[in-house]
C-alpha cells in the first residue's frame, strides 16, 4: 500500500469528502422536508414550498439514474479491455466473445428493434443454466450436514424437507402443510425480518460513515 500523502493528495481527499458530505446532506434534507408537505401547515403556498424543497433530491436522484444507465458503457469498455488483453495471451474464448460482441452490435445496428438474437441465444442459455441451478441446489441441499454438522445444519435440513413436502399436493401430507404454514408465518417471517433489519442497520451505519467523509472510497 502506498504511503504517499502529499499536500495535493490531502486536498483531494478533503475535497471529495466535502463533496460527498454536501451532496448527501442536501439529498437527505431535501427528501425529509420535501416529501412531507404537512410540515408546513395549511398555509397557502406550503405545497409549492415542499415541492421546491424536494427539487434537489429529485434532480440528484434522476442524475443518479442516468449515470447508472450510462455506466453500461464502462462495463463494455471493461469487458473489451479485459478480453483484448487475454486475446494477446492466446485465449480462445476471448476471441469468441469479441467476435460475438462485434456480430451482435452489427445485428442490432442493421436490424433496429429486432430482439430475435437475444431470444434465440440468451434466453435458452439462461433457461438451461436455471435447470442446472436446480441440480446444484439439490446437490448442495444433500450435503448440508457435510458442511455444517451441528444442530443448526440439522434444523436447516429439517425445515427444507418440511417446506418441500408441504409443497406437494399429497393428501396424506396435510399435517406437514400446517407445519409449513406455521414455520413460514412465525420463525421464517421473524428470521427474515431480523436479517433485513440487520442489513438496514448496517446500511445506515455505512451511510452515516460515508456522509461523515470517513469512508475510504469517499476519502479519495
Amino acid at each position: 500500500m502506498s504511503n504517499r500523502t502529499g499536500r495535493g493528495q490531502g486536498f483531494g481527499i478533503a475535497l471529495s469528502a466535502f463533496v460527498a458530505f454536501a451532496v448527501g446532506a442536501v439529498t437527505a434534507l431535501s427528501l425529509l422536508l420535501g416529501d412531507n408537505p404537512a410540515l408546513f401547515g395549511d398555509q397557502p403556498g406550503s405545497a409549492q414550498l415542499a415541492g421546491l424543497l424536494a427539487l434537489p433530491a429529485d434532480v440528484l436522484l434522476r442524475l443518479v439514474t442516468i449515470v447508472v444507465a450510462l455506466s453500461i458503457v464502462i462495463g463494455i469498455a471493461n469487458l473489451l479491455t479485459t478480453h483484448v488483453g487475454r486475446l494477446s495471451r492466446g485465449k480462445f474464448y476471448s476471441a469468441v466473445l469479441l467476435a460475438s460482441f462485434g456480430f451482435t452490435v452489427y445485428w442490432y445496428v442493421t436490424r433496429r428493434g429486432d430482439t430475435s438474437l437475444l431470444e434465440a441465444v440468451q434466453v435458452p442459455i439462461e433457461s438451461a443454466l436455471a435447470a442446472l441451478l436446480c441440480l446444484s441446489l439439490l446437490h448442495g441441499g444433500s450435503r448440508v450436514l457435510g458442511k455444517r454438522a451441528d444442530i443448526w445444519g440439522l434444523l436447516f435440513v429439517a425445515v427444507a424437507v418440511i417446506v418441500l413436502l408441504a409443497s406437494t399436493p399429497i393428501a396424506e401430507l396435510a399435517p406437514v402443510q400446517a407445519w409449513r404454514d406455521w414455520l413460514m408465518r412465525v420463525p421464517v417471517g421473524a428470521g427474515a425480518r431480523a436479517m433485513l433489519i440487520g442489513i438496514a442497520l448496517g446500511t445506515v451505519v455505512t451511510g452515516v460513515r460515508a456522509l461523515l467523509g470517513q469512508d475510504r472510497s469517499v476519502r479519495g
Partner: peptide
Amino acid sequence: TLAAVLVIVFGNTIYALRGLLRGPRAQGR
C-alpha cells in the same frame, strides 16, 4: 419434489453418520 426430498434426506443421513463415526474433529468444516 419427492425425489429431491429423498436425495436431501439420504445425502444428509450419510454425512451425519460419517460425522458421527469419525468424530467431530474429522468432519469437513
